[in-house]
């Protein structure tokens, strides 16, 4: 399982991670707070993100492909006009709920913009840097550490899971319906034991190198004001659009 990160050397890549984090979250908040009737505000948000994409030299196709995560919700959103209540209109012979159409548009527009912004953040920031950024933003140490260990060992554990799958399948097991679920669940049990025991061994390895409960902080990168100013452009533009519209 690879993250979305694409190594690169654009102005967006070079921006301090804490600045990007704040900018993207604020942008998402502004988008969600925008009344759905302001079509052109959403259009301008999309344009802003497109500009960021260009500046970051992330291929547009890459962003579009990753947008597929929200597919289940697209289906849900498209269903709302059919099942929604209230006043109805006929669109090409199909009776749709007016409020439902609005709701569908609202969800689609905001979810798409939100996901696109997250994709850009993840694509231009190394996971490790993102965690350091969160640490700078005073997210509790312990949470950062948990996430750090999780990311370090995710690949190792997924590897173990894949090996178990190969072992199952090479012995002729193919899951067909819920009756086979217990076999998978037994693998899950084994995977838990392995993960837990690895956690114990990692803890022992830490202890044997003098760990006493706090991680030594080795890096503490303060972001220069200029970086904050540059990152602020995204939410400021979005807010400006919102207030002017």
């Amino acid at each position: 399982m690879k993250g979305l990160y694409r190594p690169g050397d654009s102005p967006i890549h070079r921006l301090a991670p804490q600045c990007k984090l704040v900018a993207v979250v604020l942008f998402a908040v502004v988008v969600v707070a925008t009344p759905r009737e302001r079509f052109w505000a959403f259009f301008l948000y999309a344009l802003t993100l497109a500009a960021v994409t260009l500046l970051a030299r992330v291929p547009v196709g890459y962003v579009l492909k990753r947008l597929a995560v929200e597919l289940p919700f697209v289906v849900f959103a498209l269903a709302i006009p059919f099942i929604g209540v209230g006043e109805r209109i006929d669109v090409m012979g199909v009776s749709l709920s007016v409020a439902g159409l609005w709701a569908a548009w609202n969800i689609l527009a905001k979810a798409t913009l939100g996901v696109a912004a997250s994709i850009l953040l993840a694509a231009t920031t190394e996971p490790r840097a993102l965690l350091l950024g969160a640490q700078r933003l005073r997210v509790p140490q312990l949470l950062i550490q948990i996430a750090t260990f999780m990311l370090r060992y995710l690949e190792v554990i997924l590897d173990e899971m894949r090996r178990m799958k190969v072992a199952r399948e090479s012995r002729g097991f193919t899951p067909r319906d819920l009756r086979q679920a217990p076999v998978l669940a037994k693998s899950a049990g084994a995977l838990f034991i392995r993960s837990y025991e690895r956690g114990e061994r990692v803890h022992l390895a830490m202890l044997s190198r003098g760990y006493t409960g706090t991680m030594p902080t080795l890096r503490d990168d303060r972001a220069p004001k200029a970086q904050w100013a540059m990152a602020a452009v995204l939410p400021v533009v979005a807010s400006a659009v919102l207030f002017v519209s």
């Binding site: 370090r152 044997s208 190198r209």
Partner: peptide, 30 residues
């Protein structure tokens, strides 16, 4: 623990930090 250095069976257990530098620094920093 400063006097006795223990190297584990599985290097994946031993190398728990995100980069080699941070990992090697972990012990002396502690």
């Amino acid at each position: 623990r400063r006097r006795v250095g223990l190297i584990f069976q599985d290097p994946d257990d031993q190398l728990f930090m995100p980069t080699v530098r941070e990992d090697v620094a972990f012990g002396p920093a502690n």
